[in-house]
Simulated assay, not measured.
Amino acid sequence: MSESCSSCAAAGSCNTESCSSAPQLTKAQKASNVKKVIAVMSGKGGVGKSSVTSMLAVSLMRQGFKVGILDSDITGPSIPKIFGIKERAGASQGGIIAPTSRGGIKIMSLNLMIENEDDPVILRGPLITQVVTQFWKDVIWGELDYLLIDMPPGTGDVAITLFQSLPINGVVMVTSPQALANMVVRKAIKMVRNYEPPIYGLIENMAYVQCPDCSKKIEVFGAPQGEEEAKRTSVPFLGALPLDPELSTLSDAGKIEDYKSENFDQIARNLAEQISKSSDKNLA
């Protein structure tokens, strides 16, 4: 691949005469400049991946970054509900206009394109992957430092399409203390390693509940295994998160941006550090 093609690959498409065989930029892509695309993945459902994606976005936004979320869980989208977004996605001659949260996070989800949020999405695999790629090509993301992709469970059609079609810069893995969750996340890690993106790190969610009276940590799902699992799979450990009823309450109310957590903020800083290290390696 020529030097010009390498630059184009980072943008997700090609816009030079020497790369005439590559797909041309859409109007939406020409109006967008996304610096880093990060997939948040678990392999297994039920580990709180969407909540982690949302709070990572909020923490990065609080650090002054411009952030967006692409909800690729087409049949089970939850991001708009978590942020309390009821505005439908708009359209212009240039592409789809993604609604923005109260804090300024751009969000695109299929739930922003259907009449009722609880209407089922009944689509076969090829149509689901078509919708996901449309969210990348036809949404006007504008200037973003980070676009987080909330991945669906599993390692099937959508995950394969995203890794093959989008310029994903890296992946964050989410697990929980159960041995079953760790077994499935190992499958996801092995899948990612079949492609090029580095794994920035592993987050262990729901590692404990903290007593509001005595601050004792109660390990309701057993002893945390995240740090050990990270070592076993040679992945950086970004940190452990508690099971916090306040986060659930605010998410149900669509007010996740009101949630304060030093744990999330520290994990976001750890993530930014791993991204920086990965970028330094690529430049070496």
Rank of each mutant, 00 (worst) to 15 (best):
P120F: 05
V34A: 05
S278E: 07
P120S: 07
G103E: 14
S18Q: 15
T249D: 08
L110A: 10
Q274V: 10
A268H: 03
V172E: 04
L25P: 14
A268S: 09
A223H: 11
P245R: 02
I218W: 02
I79C: 02
A31D: 13
G103P: 05
E117K: 15
K30Y: 06
E115L: 04
P126A: 14
S251M: 10
L144Q: 14
G68W: 12
T53H: 00
V40H: 05
Q178S: 12
E117V: 06
S18P: 10
L127M: 15
D280W: 12
A98I: 13
V171C: 08
S109K: 06
K216A: 13
V172L: 03
L110Q: 12
M206P: 01
Y200G: 00
K281H: 14
E196K: 15
I199P: 11
T129H: 03
S176V: 10
C8M: 14
G154N: 07
I149Q: 09
P152C: 04
L162Y: 11
V209A: 15
S234F: 05
F65G: 06
V47I: 15
W136Y: 06
A272Y: 14
P224E: 09
C8H: 11
P167C: 02
A188R: 10
I140P: 12
S176N: 11
I114M: 07
T53D: 02
A272N: 08
L112N: 05
N270L: 13
F83P: 00
Y200S: 02
V172N: 01
Y146R: 09
K86Y: 10
A31S: 10
A207N: 03
M151C: 10
L147K: 04
P153G: 07
S72I: 04
M151E: 06
M55D: 02
G68K: 03
A207E: 01
L283S: 14
V184G: 05
E227R: 15
I69N: 00
C19E: 09
M206C: 07
N282T: 10
L162W: 03
F163C: 01
T133E: 12
T26N: 08
R124D: 10
N263V: 02
L243N: 10
P236A: 02
Q63D: 07
C8E: 15
D244C: 01
M151A: 01
K86R: 14
A240L: 08
L241M: 05
L250S: 02
D280P: 10
M191N: 13
E246F: 00
F237H: 06
G104Q: 03
M113L: 14
P198I: 02
G95S: 04
L123H: 13
V58Q: 00
K44I: 13
I256D: 00
V185F: 05
Q24T: 13
I85D: 00
K190D: 15
A188P: 05
I256F: 00
V139S: 12
E257H: 02
N111K: 10
T175Q: 08
C19P: 00
E87F: 05
L110Y: 04
D138Q: 15
Y259N: 00
S234R: 15
T133H: 12
A98M: 01
V121C: 03
I38Q: 01
A89L: 04
T155S: 07
R232H: 11
S165V: 05
G226I: 01
S92C: 06
